[in-house]
Every structure is written in C-alpha cells, then in structure tokens.
Write a protein that binds this DNA or RNA. Structure first.
Lengths: 234, 234
DNA sequence: CGAAACCGAGAGCACTGCTCTCGCCAATCC
DNA sequence: GGATTGGCGAGAGCAGTGCTCTCGGTTTCG
C-alpha cells in the first residue's frame, strides 16, 4: 500500500513468516514451532529470518496476536448476525463460535488458552487488548441483558469481600453496571465456558464418552446461561 | 525389597530419574524437559539414561503417571478427613485440594490438564486409570449425595438425546444411579472446576484482577455445588 | 554519486534427542 | 571354578534446534 518498495517487500515477508508459522503451528504444535523450518519453507537461510523476527518468542507473540484477532473477529462477526435483544442466542453465538474455532485450530487454541509455553512470556502490552476481546464481549452481553431486565439476579452463596472489592475496579474500568452476584457468576461462566472447550479440545473427556460434543456443549451453554441468571428475553 | 541387588539398583536409578525429572519439570516446564539435563544431574552421560527410559516421551509418561497418582492421593487423603455425610464439605475438599496442588505444582498441572505436549501421546493403558481418579471421586460423591437425598434434581434445559444415550454406558461402567440431569450437570461442574483452576494457574484472569484467588475459587465451588443441585445435607 | 542502511548467505557455538559401538563388571550356567 | 551371558556406563556421532557473527551485495537516501 504505502511506503517504499522496500517497505512493501518487508511487510510482505513478515506476512509470509506469520502465515508459514501458522501452518507449522497447526500441523506440528507450538513447542515444535521451529524458526529454521519456517526459514526453509520461506526458501531462505535461517539467519535471514532474524532480520524480521528477533527471536522465536517474538514469532510466538506474532502468532498469539494473530490468533486472538482471528478469534475476536469470528466472535464479532457471529454476534453481528444475531438479533440485539436475543441475549440467549447471543451467548450461544459467542460460545459456539469460540468452540468451533477451537476445534478447527486446536494448536492455536492451545497456544492462547492452554498451558503457557515454558520460558515464553507474552508481552502484556501487545496481547492483553486482543486477548480480552471475547471476555469483553461476554460482559458486555451481560450488561446489556441486565439493563434490559433479562437477568434475574441469582441469590446463591454470598460474594466474598475480596471479590466485591476487586469488582469496584473492574466496574470502573469497563464502565459496567452489574451487581456483584451477576459479575461473580459471570466470571465463573467465563472460566467454565473455556473449561468445557479445553476439556473437549485437549481430550480430557476421553474418546466418545459423551456422544456428540456439539450437543454436549450446547447443553452446557444453556446451563451456564441459567447460572448467570439469564432469562430468555425479558 | 525384592530381587537381586541389580534389580534394586535398577529401580533405585529409575526412581532417581523420575525424581530429577520432576524437579526439572517444576523449574523449567514440560517442553524444556531434557533427557540430557536429567543425565547430568544424575551424574551420568546421556546415553546411559536410555538404558532405563526408552525415550523422552516415556519419561513424560512416567511423570504423568506420578503426577496423577500424587494428585489422586492428595484428594483421597483430604476426603478421608471429612465427614462422610457432609457432601458440601466433601466437594469443597476435592476442589480446594486440586486447586492447592495445581497452584503448588503448576508445571505438573499443565502437563496433566493443559495443552497436550506436541508429538506426545500418553498411552491410554497406563494413564487412564490414574488419570480418572479425581473425576471418579466426584461422581462417587454425587452418587452418594443423591442416594442420601441431598441432591435436588434440577429442572433446567433438557439433556440432549446423544448425551442421554452416552450416559447409559457411563452408568453401566461406573455402577451409577444418577438421573440424566444430575449427570449432565456433573460433567459441566467437572469441566468448570478445572476451567477455573486452569484460568488461575495459567494466568488467564490477569494479575490481581479478582482479589484473593482462594476466595474466588471458594465461591465458584459453592455455585458449582448449586449447579449440580447439591443441598447442604439432606 | 557516494554514504548509509538493509538484507541474504554462510560459518559457527551450544544445546537437544537418539543410535551405535566399545569395553567393564557382575550374575549366571556348566 | 571357569566360561559365558547380559546389563551398564562412556564416548563418538548424526541430525536437528536457537541464535550470533561476519561477509558481500543491493537498495535507498542525502
């Protein structure tokens, strides 16, 4: 687009590196991601790649950001196709989209939400923003549902004091208006959602133990909606 | 104990290898587990280790089994200290024990419940039995609670057909007597439990976002008890 | 046009998993 | 008791890894 031919060539090469890296990530997994192999596929000697990527860790960061972005885009796109006021369907859209993406790209999902790669620490300033898109979509959904009166605030066990204190900052940062109970259950639903997906993707359920995984997940989503107090429409 | 001196020396060396491997796993992480480094710590050249362990993958398997066993023992021990009929306390014991163990041994937890190590496939015949101890403790707890009338079968969304069919085999294999609703919610609670722990151990919550993690987890456990319909005592 | 920046190739270091051969020593067999 | 077998550690070696450095060649810019 812009800049000198050299700049364009450079960003083209960068894009190629990320693309090839994603391929290797899909087929081999994160720990097997080798800068030398990427260089080979790029048709270049290994040291040349270091002109573009400072280290293997930085390549991982590039892939992490690309993965978060792709997942966030998928969720946003799915939400765009669901009626604004149908909160149950919106929650279902978020959940099934994340699950489908995770099943389709298990290695990338593992990189983002699985065990951290040893020795690698994702730089917060580059990964937190794209990495929180899904959870922000979730809390936004709950906030809208609550504002529309579509959430019946659950009774349940009392929210511990330290959690309620922390919620003050969370509310301020996200500009939320949600009671402690809903917020606390929202955190649980968030963790549970990814727990269900991780169990399926990482094979913790075992093979064919619970029948159709999509049906199982759909049911789990419904129960989670109940957990946060979401009632189908106001 | 038994066998020739050579046999005893061999099993001693095996135990040393596993012990050193666990140390490296704790400090470096699974992907950085190096057979050569273990050999160095053992005071022996790398090829000598191959007399005891066929490959790096087999060392991983040994560590996986050791980890599952340790976690299972911890859970059993904790359950032994809780009154038989106090089902809420028993669920809490299981949950907090798993969480405490995970926080104390994050690398081992990641190896067992995080993203699978690429290229490594745990042999089912050696890992499924110890790997299912926690979930078996969970369903046993629910079965006992249900038999004691301490579970109020939830209404909630209907259990999908494929799941109900799969439950037939599950019930037969574990000798259970639990309605579909409880079983389905039990699966969800199981996945959610590990989802919460994984989020904490893997740092998905972010630093200090929700205050005291133990308090957060305790609250989540209580909500999960509610999810499966567990009522404090009959 | 010349200086400066950029970039690819190649060599090299330290590390990894793993295989192979060579001896040494102990347990076993006759 | 002597010969044989088998386990075991050491060492060399292969192919791969991340990463650094230097050396030319090309492109860009002042």
């Amino acid at each position: 687009m812009e800049g000198t031919p050299r700049d364009r060539a450079r960003s083209q090469t960068m894009a190629d590196i990320v693309r090839i890296g994603r391929q290797h990530l899909s087929t081999e997994g994160a720990a097997a991601l080798s800068l030398r192999a990427v260089a080979r596929d790029l048709g270049v000697v290994s040291s040349a790649v270091y002109r573009y990527v400072a280290s293997r860790d930085e390549l991982l960061t590039l892939l992490v950001v690309a993965g978060y972005d792709e997942l966030g885009d998928a969720v946003d796109s799915a939400l765009g196709k669901v009626e604004e006021g149908d909160f149950g369907a919106r929650l279902s859209a978020i959940g099934t989209t994340v699950r489908a993406w995770a099943v389709g790209e298990p290695a990338m999902y593992a990189l983002l939400f699985g065990s951290p790669v040893p020795g690698y620490h994702a730089p917060a300033e580059r990964t937190t923003e794209p990495g929180t898109r899904v959870v922000r979509a979730l809390v936004q959904l709950w906030a809208q549902a609550y504002a529309a009166g579509a959430i019946q605030v659950p009774q349940g066990p009392p929210v511990p004091g330290s959690l309620a204190e922390a919620f003050v900052a969370v509310r301020a940062e996200l500009g939320l208006d949600l009671p402690d109970q809903v917020l606390a259950r929202g955190v649980l639903a968030w963790a549970a959602l990814f727990g269900c997906i991780s169990f399926e993707v990482f094979g913790q359920y075992g093979p064919d133990t619970f029948g159709d995984p999509a049906a199982l997940f759909e049911h789990q989503l419904r129960v989670l909606a109940e957990t946060v107090g979401l009632t189908d429409r106001a």
